[in-house]
Design a binder for these strands. Structure first.
Length: 464
RNA sequence: GUCCCCAUCGUCUAGCGGUCCAGGACGUCAGCCUCUCACGCUGAAAACACGGGUUCGAUUCCCGUUGGGGACGCCA
């Protein structure tokens, strides 16, 4: 049997970080088994679904390189098929029309709760004669759930989970306006799409019992279920905007690399021994549902950031240059060919100091700024003291330097410092301040080499 | 209120009855390295929620307590 999984977001906003992980697990599982990973847009809630949200979700999935097979299935377009399934159950006597008003249902829930019974529809119209139907009321169609016994789901992550059927009420399949509910749509679509493994958040676990009954009523095979734990905020509470970013696109904007996101998200709730850092290919080889934990995990930005720093150091430098250029230009700092060349030459020194692309772009900006350079407070302080005088004395040596390479410059400056009985830092810091406008930068000799003799001297003279 | 799930360092986790006075990673702290900041390296503090069983032996199995999370919509 070929494995077929799916990710089924509802397009009401951005791709939630928890959704991203669900998509990732579905992707990894399908690829591991050489199966298919499908995408279904659950847009049956017409009031909340937008094309903009669909685009945002597709964008994020693409960014994370979670490529799905085939075209996305749009659930709303399949509504007639869903309704047809409901009507077939009606004909077989496995479903029935219910004429209760929202008010009656609310009262029913209240009463059940007060009596200590499970809150749900009490089956008022289940066996009632349709002739008693009130006039002018459009009925919903409800499924006749089993009332005796219990239902067990053999969940691939949670293990066997059993619930008494008395807990399950007769759910609505078709609304009064004839549109299908989520419960009906998922089941029909998952069946029609040939989904073999439903991997989703465990907030759906209780839905699985109801859906199992629906599969049976329809005479269909029940897919394998795998309910993965949800991701909580750092405080253990449900992840929400209160905790900061919850949309994948925000992490992208904040300078996180997709491979870092995926590595982090894979490791959150899933383990393969002590392995912490692994490639997409390894993840596909190693991923299995048995390795998925059963407890909720907390989202830890610090660890994500550490992973991101690692991947920045591993990334193709040319890619980082592109990222930095686009971020710099977006912030209003145009980058010309000279600037680009400096970024490329200086990237090695820049990347190992950055934790995010935002850091990287900030730290790289001095390479492309035009003179005079604006000095930050610490840089100014360095230059206000002995700094400027040191640079003044150093200038002739730099002008006369036969070789403007990093190593030669370091030797030159070291000699200069020794001759004047200074520590290297007493010379390096003023140089750094003059070249970068800051007290922090990549090694100064690297910076000098990247900038070249003319620019280096221009920058130094500019602060004298 | 009813039902379901979960429970190892601050966090993510390894552990699938003895190899555990519990391992790794992030974070934290100390030190080394050092032209700044990082990187890197070395070291340290840091956990089996609690109570009963089962067993020769429980972090590992069972039950309960407590604490978290989730579901109870004509939302998805």
């Amino acid at each position: 049997m070929t494995v077929v999984t799916r990710f089924a977001p509802s397009p009401t906003g951005y791709l939630h970080i928890g959704g991203a992980r669900t998509a990732l697990f579905n992707y990894l599982f399908a690829r591991h088994h050489g199966g298919k990973f499908l995408l279904r847009i659950e847009d049956t809630d017409r009031a909340r679904s937008t094309q903009q949200a669909v685009d945002a979700i597709l964008d994020s999935l693409t960014w994370l390189q979670l490529d799905w097979d085939g075209e996305p299935v749009y659930q709303f377009a399949r509504a007639p098929r869903h309704a047809e399934a409901a009507h077939s159950l009606l004909e077989k006597g496995l479903a029935y029309r219910c004429y209760c008003s929202p008010e009656e249902l609310a009262a029913m829930r209240e009463e059940a709760r007060a009596a200590g019974r499970p809150a749900g529809y009490n089956g008022y119209w289940r066996d009632r004669d349709p002739s008693e139907a009130p006039a002018g009321v459009d009925p919903v169609i409800r499924l006749k759930m089993p009332r005796e016994g219990e239902t067990t789901i053999d969940d691939l992550v949670q293990g066997p989970v059993t619930v008494a059927n008395a807990q399950l009420d007769d759910m609505v399949l078709l609304r009064a306006d004839g549109t299908p509910t989520y419960m009906l749509s998922v089941v029909v679509d998952d069946h029609d799409m040939g989904i073999t493994h439903v991997i989703r958040g465990d907030d759906h676990l209780t839905n699985a019992f109801r859906q199992a009954a629906l599969y049976r009523a329809l005479g269909w095979d029940i897919p394998q279920f795998a309910h993965i734990p949800l991701i909580n905020g750092p405080d253990g509470k449900k992840l929400s905007k209160r905790h900061g970013a919850v949309g994948a696109e925000t992490y992208r904007e904040d300078g996180f690399l997709p491979e870092a996101m995926c590595n982090y998200l894979t490791r959150l709730g899933w383990g393969h021994g002590d392995d912490e850092i692994f490639s997409r290919q390894q993840a596909i080889e190693w991923f299995d549902l048995a390795g998925v934990g059963r407890s909720a995990a907390r989202f830890d930005t610090a660890k994500l950031t550490a992973l991101n720093a690692h991947y920045i150091r591993e990334a193709d430098p040319a890619r980082l240059v592109d990222e930095v250029v686009s971020r710099l230009e977006a912030s209003g700092l145009p980058v010309d060919e000279t600037g680009r060349a400096r970024l490329a030459a200086g990237m090695e020194g820049l990347r190992e100091r950055a934790r995010t692309l935002v850091d990287l772009a900030d730290a790289a900006a001095f390479y492309v700024r035009s003179l005079p350079l604006e000095l930050d407070e610490k840089a100014r302080k360095i230059l206000d003291g002995e700094g400027a005088e040191v640079l003044r004395q150093l200038c002739p040596d730099l002008e006369a330097a036969p070789d403007f390479s990093r190593d030669a410059l370091e030797a030159l400056v070291r000699t200069f410092a020794e001759k004047n009985s200074m520590k290297l830092g007493q010379v390096a810091q003023p140089i750094r301040a003059a070249l970068s406008g800051s007290s922090v930068s990549p090694p100064v000799f690297d910076v000098m080499e990247v900038l070249g003799r003319n620019e280096t001297l221009d920058r130094i003279r500019g602060v004298l």
